[in-house]
Design a protein around this nucleic acid. Structure first.
Lengths: 203, 203, 203, 203
DNA sequence: CAATAATCGAGACGGTACGTCTTGTCTTGGC
DNA sequence: GCCAAGACAAGACGTACCGTCTCGATTATTG
């Protein structure tokens, strides 16, 4: 018989009670709320359990600690990605895309994001996950626009795209994480502009 | 932090037993060791007390928590600052100075530094102290060289020096805190070079 | 015994798959082993399930908790009962029978037995089961011999047999459960002897 | 005024904050209450902490687990001991003293006592403590009366006092721990009477 | 030199989160 | 319908660290 759900899988039956997707989702939702309400550090596993109605044991069964839960919760909440604007001018596209990133860093999400980066300095797993699932998608977006600019001759072709991205995103993140003058849209535009033009006097 | 230079024998002296400079120093020394051995997070106040021979109560009398101790210990240990090289070429100077920063970020100190930045995402006091005593001195060094380059016509005069510094330091720190391809001297040189020349094709 | 391992195709009786006698036996066997290896308290339901290959759900379907399983496992293992010796002298018979009990209390089984009595102080069901299936058979054995001694005029006829048994068994069990000088065969003989003769000086 | 320096103390000064007798007492009091309200097994360390206002950490600092606390709480509450009645007749004294024990086993305390004995079957420390502090004082009381009876010629001189005590107390405790017909004063009197007279027919 | 005051080392304490463990129930799919 | 596998809720366990709080012992200034 066929399963109406049309599972494309191997069908080699999994035995035992399947993992409750409901619990899984409830944990992520509760964690997301707590991340915004009290922050990464003050959020406790106990509270996640209480609010989600999922037992602590179950949480620890699927995640090694609250930081892993936080990363997954944060990422799963961010499926609304900014997309490539395609205005015709690669420079304009770049500015729009980077503005999008700045918004992301700055919003309510931004605090959580900063805290996760903070935690990543202590926990390699957080660092890896964050990089793999978040930074890479951010970078890929910039990379696409960058490639277009190179193709149209607007951006320099002799630069490693990864380096280009580092010099574009780096200053923005630096301001976000350590800057005393806080990051906003205008500041971001200025920084991007400076980076595009370069610091040296043109010969 | 208070100005501790004016400590002894000022006329209207304080009554009671004076603060033990010996204890103060012992705490900082022990903290420094622990920072390198086990890291900021795993280091406990209790262990600082045990190792320094100073009681916990005394530590809490002079610092609000272990992070404050860590910041002071870290800063007090870093008196060996890189200085302005003055080679004649501002571009070369800049490269040398930034290499010095990268070394700092990368060394044994670098891990502690990264952890402190991580902690700063949760604790505003750490952020403030770090900025005030560390970032500013780093930035000032770059700023001096930058000003010289502007004066000699090598660097653009129409850029806010703070912005210039952000775009120079930002990518380096970004690589250090989040980069999967780790930061080293060569990578730093490349990034600085890209930043100096700019991303746009010059007309 | 019936061959219950045979195919369940008899048709008569209940619908559905019948209870697996094999599982039943496996649970008791595994429990018995665990009782001796780790003791009543440290033995877990999970471990019984794992070792017997019977699922926890099945165990809980047939027994209310691990203590009930333990009682049944313990009792089912003890079919090798001491029997009435019938030497001719009731006094000798009594001594032999009580020695048998002491051996039982003292052997490897003895620890499990003591733990079950311990558990009985918390769980009335354990107490009841233990009493019904174990203590009564022990007492019955003594009672038979006692009756013979009364009939032959060796033992006092004016004593309630149950009281007689209490004063005979009580001291032995007391030593087993709480005595610092541990119970052994010689000690048992002495206690029985004292009880038989009485504590008062004979008039 | 007294010279504070002239303390006639033990000298070896205790350093640090002294143990809080108040906390100690509060823990024992709360534990006592809980023992009577919910029993040994259902009582939790957490609840002791909550009710006494003493933190769990402090409890675990001074006792290895809740059973140790329970033993101490139980014992400390029982300083009101039954005393030697000294009526003139050793037999009467014995009966009174044993009645006292039976009352103890039977009262509200009795359930806790039985549970502690139950627990002692699993935990050697409980067994030792119970024996050392409770059983011995019980036995000593009986032993005193016994010695008097021997001296006055009422009780047999050729019996080891410890054996005598075992055969007197054993049956009572046996009834308490396992007897289906529960222990009461009359039953106790009967058992003692039987033990005193002995089971054998006197020649 | 005595009184006053603030400091110090030691370590007990309340609070709170941690991550683990066990119990007994529930949910799959296979037989 | 029975069962093995195994996920799940509930909640106690004992540990760890934090920051506060006694103690009694020092060590200065001040009268």
């Amino acid at each position: 018989m066929l399963d109406s759900a049309g599972q494309p899988d191997v069908g080699a039956g999994k035995r035992g009670r399947p993992r409750s997707e409901q619990s899984h989702a409830a944990v992520l939702r509760a964690t997301s709320e707590l991340l915004h309400e009290v922050g990464l550090r003050s959020m406790t596993t106990e509270e996640i359990a209480a609010r989600s109605g999922v037992s602590k044991a179950t949480i620890y069964k699927w995640w090694p600690n609250k930081y892993a839960v936080a990363v997954e919760a944060f990422l799963s909440e961010m499926m609304a990605e900014s997309h490539d604007p395609h205005t015709g001018s690669a420079a304009t596209d770049l500015r729009i895309v980077l503005r999008g990133l700045v918004n992301f860093y700055t919003e309510s999400n931004g605090r959580v994001f900063a805290e996760l980066i903070g935690e990543a300095q202590f926990d390699p797993a957080v660092r890896t996950e964050l990089h793999k699932h978040l930074m890479i998608s951010h970078r890929d977006l910039v990379k696409t626009v960058w490639a277009r600019g190179v193709a149209t001759g607007q951006f320099r072709a002799d630069i490693d795209p990864d380096d280009a991205i580092d010099v574009l995103i780096g200053p923005l993140l630096y301001r976000r994480l350590l800057g005393q003058p806080h990051l906003d849209g205008t500041a971001a535009d200025t920084l991007v502009d400076v980076t595009m033009r370069g610091l040296s006097v043109r010969l």
